[in-house]
């Protein structure tokens, strides 16, 4: 953490969903490249946090570590009390199924699957019975307002609609932690606002902890808390401007 960086303290002492202690992530390329240089932070259940920073500051790396997509070179990443750094890939996958869901900037939908199939994918992977999966898919599609687009292919949808599908896919598992990587990055301003409103409403209704990496200050202001990264370290951690909702 940068010297003098503020550490955000939530008003109430909620149980911690995420606790990162002295997390370092470096890559051995031609020379050692350090993406994260000793990050320590915690996120409480029910928070909606934005992570900002210039390109190469380590935002996406941090998000990947939080979701167990990657492991730190040193330090610990505790998600709901489980240290992902000490788990095997299989254990992390199983953990992710139950606790973490993702939204990507480029939506990352399966181009050959229809909307309902895309949304059902995490359930299918988890071996949820077809009938139950179907019911849950219907429910989340209604939640994101896409019930009438269920049988379309992704390339038949607008960017905003595709991101809604990605959100529905993230919601369908009822994971308590939702990680979003530039969720509005590919959208125009109006569609971006819609998506942020949707995320905000989900956060309100479900109490899902949301961590969002973004370049967009408007997106950041939709959150409660803003963490700024620079050169792989936390430069600032505090309430998001306008994050008073």
């Amino acid at each position: 953490m940068h010297k003098g960086a503020k550490t955000f303290r939530p008003c109430k002492e909620e149980p911690k969903v995420l606790q990162l202690s002295d997390v370092v992530k470096s890559y051995e390329l031609k020379s050692t490249v350090t993406a994260l240089a000793g990050i320590t932070l915690s996120i409480a259940a029910g928070e909606m946090v934005a992570i900002m920073g210039p390109s190469g500051s380590g935002k996406s790396t941090l998000l990947n570590l939080m979701g167990g997509l990657d492991v730190p070179s040193s330090g610990s990443v505790l998600v709901a009390g489980t240290d992902l750094a000490r788990q095997s890939e299989k254990e992390r996958s199983l953990f992710r199924r139950a606790h973490v869901s993702y939204i990507f900037q480029a939506y990352h939908l399966m181009p050959t699957l229809r909307v309902r199939q895309n949304v059902a994918l995490p359930l299918r992977l988890a071996g949820v019975a077809a009938k139950e999966a179907e019911a849950r898919v219907e429910r989340v599609l209604a939640e994101v307002g896409l019930e009438n687009r269920a049988d379309h292919l992704p390339d038949e949808l607008s960017g905003g609609e595709r991101q809604r599908v990605a959100i529905a896919r993230a919601l369908v598992t009822d994971a308590p932690l939702l990680l979003a990587d530039e969720p509005t990055g590919n959208l125009d301003s109006a569609r971006g606002k819609e998506i942020l409103a949707l995320l905000r409403s989900i956060h309100g209704r479900r109490g899902t902890t949301i961590v969002m990496v973004t370049h967009d200050s408007e997106a950041a202001s939709a959150c409660d808390r803003l963490i700024r990264l620079r050169d792989g370290q936390v430069e600032d951690d505090g309430a998001a401007p306008g994050g008073d909702r």
């Binding site: 997509l69 299989k90 996958s93 992710r96 990352h108 399966m110 995490p122 992977l125």
Partner: peptide
């Protein structure tokens, strides 16, 4: 590759 990555991100196990 990308799809497999997404599947893994969504919880697919290497064995699956």
């Amino acid at each position: 590759t990308r799809e497999i990555g997404i599947l893994k991100a969504l919880g697919a196990l290497p064995g699956q």
